[in-house]
Simulated assay, not measured.
Amino acid sequence: MSTIRTTRPLRVVAVSGGLQRPSKSAALAEHLLDLIASEIPCQPHLIEMGQIAPEIAGAVWRSQLPGAVVQQLVAVEQADVLVVATPVFRGSYTGLFKHFFDFIDQDALIDKPILLAATGGSERHSLVIDHQLRPLFSFFQARTLPLGIYATDKDFSGYRLQSEALIERASLAVQRALPLLQLAQHTAPLQAEEWLAA
């Protein structure tokens, strides 16, 4: 399959709600970033909640956050495309994952394509994508992509994907997203690349 030619690399930011490192959610997010990068020139960037959790847990206002965390928020706000992946905790995304997005400007994600993913201990949590993640990003008026990816523990070997069915579904999700990713490439304004400076 040919790579899409672009004038500027697509800014693709993944946010993992996993609080541990290594994390299955981060591994899934990185896999999706790699799939996107194999199809379209991009600047991939991964944000892991486990790395910034101590700095955001006690903050109420964005002004209380350290500069390094604000830079991560700006990276999300200036991204052309988002990938979000979170472990399921008691039927929903993690609290710090939600807390992070509480600091995002409510107009920053309008029409932004978002690929949704989640990890859980069993199949019984697979509806978290449609029942929890989609409503969250609908509030932001984002453009959630139609095919989400849900992985269970048995889909991994350590922290690497091993399930062929899941790998195929992830590939299909990215293939179906390509028209929107190309549209995002051509419609996003050119901006200075300080968004990743940290």
Rank of each mutant, 00 (worst) to 15 (best):
W195Y: 06
L180I: 04
L172D: 02
G121I: 10
T6R: 10
S16F: 00
E77P: 10
V83S: 08
T86W: 05
Y150D: 10
L127D: 08
A197D: 01
L82S: 12
I129F: 07
A53C: 15
A85C: 15
R134F: 03
E123L: 07
L136E: 11
P189N: 07
I149S: 12
V15P: 04
A29D: 12
E77R: 03
F137W: 12
D80G: 14
S163L: 06
W195E: 00
W195T: 03
L96Y: 09
L136A: 14
V83R: 02
D105I: 05
R169H: 06
I52L: 13
G121C: 11
Q71A: 10
K24I: 09
E168I: 00
V74L: 09
S122H: 13
Q175W: 00
Q175I: 03
E164W: 00
A177S: 15
L127H: 09
R62Q: 11
Q64N: 08
L133V: 03
L73H: 03
E39Y: 00
T3K: 08
R134W: 06
D153R: 11
F97N: 05
W61S: 13
V74H: 04
L28S: 11
A184R: 04
E30W: 01
H31L: 08
A37G: 14
F103Y: 07
A197M: 01
L196E: 02
R62T: 07
S16R: 03
Q71K: 08
E164A: 13
T6W: 01
G18T: 04
G91N: 08
A117M: 09
K112W: 00
L178V: 13
V60P: 03
A59M: 12
G120R: 06
V15C: 10
V13M: 01
F139M: 10
V69K: 04
P189W: 05
R160A: 15
R134Q: 10
L166S: 05
T94Q: 05
G95W: 02
D107N: 12
A118C: 13
R62M: 05
M49I: 15
A85F: 03
L73P: 03
L116K: 01
A177V: 09
V12I: 03
R5D: 14
P9W: 01
A184H: 07
Q106M: 07
L127K: 03
L115K: 01
Q185M: 00
L46E: 07
M49Y: 03
R176C: 07
D111E: 11
V81W: 04
I110L: 08
G158I: 10
Q182S: 13
L32V: 13
S23K: 14
R134A: 06
S171N: 06
V70S: 05
A188R: 06
L133G: 01
A198F: 04
R134M: 07
L127I: 07
A79K: 02
E39S: 14
I104P: 06
Q78M: 14
R124T: 11
A27I: 00
A14T: 13
F103P: 02
H125N: 15
V60A: 14
M49D: 06
F139D: 11
D102H: 05
G91D: 04
